[in-house]
Write a protein that binds this DNA or RNA. Structure first.
Lengths: 233, 233
DNA sequence: CGACCATTTGATATGGATCAAGCGATGTGG
DNA sequence: CCACATCGCTTGATCCATATCAAATGGTCG
């Protein structure tokens, strides 16, 4: 059901160092002033695939910017099931909290470079710089919007959930009609509130109706966006 | 399935007037500085039961504070189903948006008094008053937290959803173990992503196990919170 | 090559939806 | 003030989408 027991490496301060020249998938940090500031203020860290970045109930003293790779946030429910709260790709900011502690855990989906900024430093900067404050507020608003969409996703049929997910990923990665999924079927299932079997079968179903192609399990080609959107609700 | 077609009264400016002496269930506005400011800045309006306060896709030019009564926000999905986003009781603020338009509709569940504040006025005030800005930010954080909890709710079993809902309502209304529900079974069902039949049967089930009592359909007595919490996940 | 792990595929079980009545409270017109 | 219509809720019978259990397949890495 749940995948491998989470490795839990201590945060490795030896990997704190200035960013090296950007590898291919690094985020263009000139785009977003908040991400830009975080780059300047923060420390770059590397997290190997499946390693924990922070844990639920740990103090939320840092905010994180994905430079490369991708990240999932999740929560383990009392019955052992895992609910994935969201996926964060290069350029995305995660770990934003309003309470003292994190309400989710975060793990690297693939080897990830992340810039880590002290939350207190960020709020202090927001106090001095109104543009940053606005940006931070807007970011929170986007996170809220995304979470509201997640709620809507979870009341739809399996087909609708998978179709919505694919369209969302296509928008976020914007590589034409080819979506490279960084996450496993289990991650997708736990995000959509389905089982891996249902995700797999649903993808197969969409392939059968020629809405998508699945050349490899991590690569999906959208063949008929209109059909997917029609399912989208 | 969906209840009566929404009445759609124009906003009645004749009800714009200073607050009269608080009726019994009015919110104690001294508690929250943001609510306090909204009281001062805003106009009081009354909305009859089931009337629309704002509609999805309308410009989000106002923010709302519930003075008395209660409010639901919701969205109609393409297949006609309704998803309730949340319930807002006296003292709660709703209608907060970060885009130009509302992403949900809002209706009065029972006759409701609401204070309406221009969004631009509120953001202007936040620009001048750091305490208000903080409060607004914190409010957004709470809304985000509540929405994240809603996500977690929707992946649980019917029993767990209903139990969680009852516990949440008990916390929010804090009338000991007696919960007076302002909303219909249909409202609850659409919030929990279930049908009214399932909500009804699940309440009956909880009653059978002596976790709750249901003296009238709108009144629930929590007899065994521990049992409910155990279901809560 | 062989082991391991993710994914797919198949067979069956089940929780909640759907369809269909029944029931009780509330309000309305005669 | 009663008979009756209405509406929200409950209860019952059946169906179906997705979960669960089980096994086969395929890709990756030592």
């Amino acid at each position: 059901m749940l995948q491998q027991p989470a490795v839990r490496p201590a945060i490795r301060t030896d990997s704190l160092r200035p960013m090296s020249p950007a590898p291919r998938s690094d985020f263009d940090r000139s785009a977003n002033p908040l991400a830009q500031s975080m780059q300047l203020m923060g420390a770059a860290m590397s997290f190997p695939r499946n390693s924990e970045i922070f844990g639920e109930n740990e103090p939320a003293d840092y905010v994180y910017l994905v430079v490369s790779g991708s990240v999932r946030t999740y929560k383990i429910l009392s019955d052992g099931r895992r609910q994935v709260g969201g996926f964060y790709l290069a350029g995305d900011i995660f770990g934003l909290e309003f309470a003292d502690d994190h309400s989710f855990s975060a793990e690297a989906i693939s080897d990830a470079k992340v810039v880590v900024v002290k939350r207190s430093a960020l709020t202090a900067l927001a106090g001095r710089d109104a543009a940053i404050a606005r940006e931070l507020f807007a970011l929170t608003g986007r996170e809220l919007g995304r979470t509201r969409d997640h709620v809507l996703l979870l009341v739809k049929s399996a087909q609708e959930r998978v179709a919505s997910f694919l369209l969302e990923m296509a928008t976020r990665t914007s590589t034409g009609n080819v979506v490279e999924l960084p996450m496993s079927r289990q991650d997708i299932a736990d995000y959509l509130g389905l089982t891996i079997e249902t995700v797999s079968r649903t993808l197969r179903g969409l392939e059968t109706t020629a809405a998508i192609e699945v050349p490899t399990s991590r690569r999906i080609v959208l063949r008929n966006r209109a059909a997917l959107s029609r399912l989208n609700s």
